[in-house]
């Protein structure tokens, strides 16, 4: 100890240590377990083909609408990217402020409600919502409380 500045000792010559890996078996086993655990998702899904999701808008409610009326509260492209944010905003707005209507960018006033507006048209949660959600492996917890208004929901949820 006496010669060193501290235990790393930058003033003292480096102590010579035999060059070898200690506990090689234990290290190898540990590394192996690490690789298996962290590689599992890749290994398990290797070779599987996941079809690109094709959310369907073919529901009786949408078909009934006139060609011109057949559009969502906001343009499709925008909805595809931002529907989750929109739903969050609606949630805050309706519950916290009591304001139940949303004015769309086209100036139309619509009911801000997942079950009582979105799902009235999109009566096919399994063919619409779940298509993409399953593909990107997200599980929005809306459906723990709000009802999708679709028959055989449990089967369709893919759980």
């Amino acid at each position: 100890m006496a010669d060193y500045k501290n235990e790393f000792g930058w003033f003292a010559p480096k102590p010579t240590v035999e060059k070898k890996i200690y506990n090689l078996t234990a290290v190898a086993v540990g590394l192996g377990i690490f690789l298996v655990v962290f590689g599992a998702p890749v290994l398990l899904n290797m070779g599987k083909v996941h079809p690109v999701p094709q959310p369907s808008v073919d529901t009786p409610a949408i078909q009934k609408l006139a060609e011109k009326e057949r559009q969502c509260v906001e343009p499709t492209e925008w909805m595809r990217a931002n529907h989750m944010q929109l739903l969050w905003d609606w949630r805050e707005q309706v519950v916290r402020t009591g304001e139940r209507y949303y004015t769309t960018s086209r100036g139309k006033k619509v009911l801000a409600s997942l079950s009582n507006n979105c799902m009235e048209c999109h009566t096919n949660k399994s063919q619409f919502c779940d298509q993409c959600h399953n593909y990107v492996a997200v599980a929005p917890n809306c459906w723990g409380c709000h009802l999708p208004k679709e028959q055989n929901v449990a089967k369709a949820e893919g759980k």
């Binding site: 009591g98 139940r100 079950s115 009582n116 917890n141 723990g144 409380c145 709000h146 009802l147 208004k149």
Partner: peptide
């Protein structure tokens, strides 16, 4: 009999009468 127009609740939250605020609206 589930009323699809009104949400149910999940495990682990508290609930009570809300004076039918959805009807008042």
């Amino acid at each position: 009999k589930i009323n699809p127009d009104y949400p149910t609740r999940e495990i682990g939250v508290v609930e009570k009468c809300l004076l039918c605020e959805e009807r008042l609206a």
